[in-house]
Write a protein that binds this DNA or RNA. Structure first.
Lengths: 230, 230
DNA sequence: TCTTTTGGTTGATAAAGATCAAGCAATCTA
DNA sequence: TAGATTGCTTGATCTTTATCAACCAAAAGA
């Protein structure tokens, strides 16, 4: 556990408002570890031992059943994952693997559970964080059910651009096959849709995305804060 | 607000462990109301004013975008809904309407937010409840992404039977069109799939479901606690 | 009781998306 | 740098699911 990580972790909404003493004891039990690319950090069904914080790299959360696999989320720095399993002391619902070499902070779930029972400010932060996670999944599921695959891709691009201050061009932060799976389609389907989206104001060349016609894209996306986020 | 409701509400996991004083003040601000069938209780995007508790009847949570509509959940007694929007003081992500004549308890969101900051036991209950809601949506989304429509229907039947103590026959608690939408398909698709599922151990006659061959159904469903619940 | 309404079913057809196979190009590695 | 690997793309085809329209039956209302 490196001292230089502490300010960054402390700055996260989840840890921002807790008592310094609680934060210190929690961090005291935590440790950092670096993992190579492609390593399975968590297997779905395993007991929830640690809250994970991604400091560097990126982590895919994915689900599998009957030989099928689906990307549920990709976590980038600085972000946490599987808080819900930790607080309920129940098995993980998703597996996790590193998408690149990653540095992860591991916070023992048992200490977490003790801490939010002792520090009311932290409890409030956990409540707020979990409510936010819940709402994020609901929004994603709404997108899956209400939009077709072309619209989902367009909406994802629109959102990415918006998060970068409406930048007209950016590089994909994940490989296309994970994006495809996250958006609930096959890589082939994504590939074909990308080509057809040139007519709707997005051009994709390799991993570079260029919004060529923002108005046209927006007409297709019909952005909705209750799906795409504020 | 009827006194006879209090024990039932108090028995809910969310309210079970809070201090009596907190519960009393919360219930003091709450009030009960009866609504006719088909009434829109909540419109998505509205500010979160009340935590809702269904005492009688049933309520559909649904989402809409660009003229499309999709059932996200159906809440039966005794169940709560839109806790997340309340604790974050943010707009509802889903609309809600009564599916039949229903009696609902309305607990002001502002009082709720005050209470879980003052009563640590209640805060822990809210944490646990929200984590449970989050995990329920994740499980449902996993089902949507990993299973095809036939499998989703079969899994839903299997789960319903399991919740009723592996009863071989039960009556659908919702109209088929809502079930179809909840499971992410059209009513026509559901209707056709139901017929084809006779070959897999489920027979449906009107609103009556009969599990004719549990083993066969289970072979199709491949039940997984990480999707179908424990 | 007789209509009217509404939810459900069925059939025909269309569209969306998945699958399989082959080819390509960028990246990694020896 | 050459070869191998890997992810992406493209084409052909098949499956799944949606759409549209008609019809039926149960339930609600006059």
């Amino acid at each position: 556990m490196h001292a230089k990580d502490l300010p960054e972790i402390r700055h996260l909404p989840l840890f921002r408002d807790m008592r310094q003493a609680s934060f210190d004891t929690l961090m005291d039990k935590a440790y950092a570890q670096s993992f190579p690319m492609g390593l399975e950090l968590i297997r779905q069904g395993d007991p929830a031992d640690f809250l994970h914080v991604v400091m560097e790299g990126s982590v895919e959360l994915y689900a599998h059943w009957a030989g099928h696999e689906s990307t549920m989320a990709v976590v980038h720095p600085v972000g946490t994952f599987i808080l819900a399993a930790c607080v309920r002391d129940q098995p993980y619902l998703m597996s996790a693997r590193t998408l690149e070499r990653s540095r992860i902070i591991l916070i023992p779930a048992s200490d977490l559970r003790v801490t939010f029972r002792q520090d009311p400010d932290f409890a409030v932060s956990v409540v707020t964080e979990l409510a936010g996670c819940y709402r994020a999944v609901i929004r994603h599921t709404k997108g899956l059910k209400l939009r077709n695959s072309r619209e989902r891709i367009a909406a994802w691009f629109w959102r990415q651009a918006a998060q970068r201050g409406n930048l007209a061009s950016f590089v994909l932060p994940v490989e296309k096959r994970f994006l495809a799976s996250y958006l609930g389609m096959t890589p082939e389907n994504l590939s074909r849709s990308l080509k057809s989206l040139e007519a709707d104001g997005v051009k994709v060349d390799g991993s570079r995305v260029i919004i060529t016609d923002r108005a046209r894209l927006e007409a297709l996306v019909q952005p909705d804060p209750l799906i795409d986020g504020a």
